[in-house]
Design a protein around this nucleic acid. Structure first.
Lengths: 178, 178
DNA sequence: GCCGACCAAACAAGCGTTTGTTTTGTCGAC
DNA sequence: GTCGACAAAACAAACGCTTGTTTGGTCGGC
């Protein structure tokens, strides 16, 4: 499918390094034909991004819903986040990667994407908010640090090593004080 | 200076989004004149990257050297890392940003840059290795998680909020079990 | 016979880079 | 001190190529 192929390319090579010709070739049509489905490259990316956010958001919510204890809920959510992000052929890499550059007015459709991202990250705000942390702990720093550690795993994750579930468990055991 | 301007642009807009014409314009010369100083855009970026690694490496080493207690050494190193990364007009953003994409054979000069990066991160391997952590702690996960949390701060850091030193202190207090 | 999906071909703009020429600066000989 | 020689640095203009996008036509299914 068109959007799937676009997601795969955007996710692996980034927005700027993926050309409309690349996408067309991998779908098996000519470049101009893409404009029958999307009015612009930007619009195509926004669609990929929206589907990616929706996909990872649903996975994370579903995973958390299967538990009641706060730490278990967070660990399940982190595992889902990492799985969606790291496992092949996923939309999520296309979502996460631009976030780093997004702070610097990189892409034109910044505002649209930032809102989608913020809505997604609210889940983690709730999950972290429910944790029984010792008083004085900065929960915002906790959330940002955890999300950063997870998202950065895109840079070093290799299929042979730790699984997403193991990475999630290890990261949380580092943050857990007991 | 040429390399400084290039670093500023690469750091804020990324490699692909910065054209030789951009760099030339911001130093006040014509595009072709750049090729009297560097044989290619790639070579110019490698120079920026090398200077960036050298700069952040020296800052981190100097900071750690001012302390003896392991946790104090690591916190000083993290503060220096964050300051070099986040404070304006620095080379370091040009260094850190490509790392995410580097895993995916993005730029042609991959190997050269990866080696420089790995050499830099050895410092943190040593610093984390010296910490008195409870047995069974995965020090590699600790290091990767900490570096990820710090590097990702590029995505959310704003000059008005927490200072780099505060961010470093908060992150480490989350990881410290006492 | 109409409409969505595709092809074929081109467009203007931007890219990194090259070329030939001119300016600018340096430095030793007179 | 002044001059000519030489090199570094910059200009001016173009190169071939890739980019996102547009246009006009073709074709098959409802």
């Amino acid at each position: 499918m068109l959007v799937n192929e676009a997601a795969r390319l955007f996710g692996s090579k980034g927005y700027r390094n993926t050309s409309m010709r690349d996408i067309a070739a991998s779908v098996g049509i000519l470049p101009g034909s893409l404009y029958h489905h999307f009015p612009s490259k930007e619009a195509l990316f926004v669609e990929v991004y929206a589907q990616g956010v929706s996909q990872i958001g649903q996975a994370v919510n579903d995973a958390a819903a299967r538990h009641t204890e706060p730490w278990a809920r967070l660990e399940a959510a982190c595992t889902a986040h990492l799985q969606t992000l790291l496992v092949k052929d996923s939309f999520a890499a296309a979502v996460i990667q631009p976030l780093l550059h997004l702070s610097i007015a990189d892409l034109p459709m910044r505002a649209e994407l930032v809102e989608l991202r913020d809505r997604y990250e609210e889940v983690f705000e709730q999950l972290v908010g429910a944790l029984p942390l010792r008083p004085g702990t900065d929960r915002r720093a906790f959330r940002l640090g955890l999300l950063g550690a997870m998202n950065w795993s895109l840079a070093w994750y290799r299929p042979g090593g730790d699984t997403p579930a193991t990475i999630a468990r290890k990261l949380l055991s580092l943050l857990r004080h007991d």
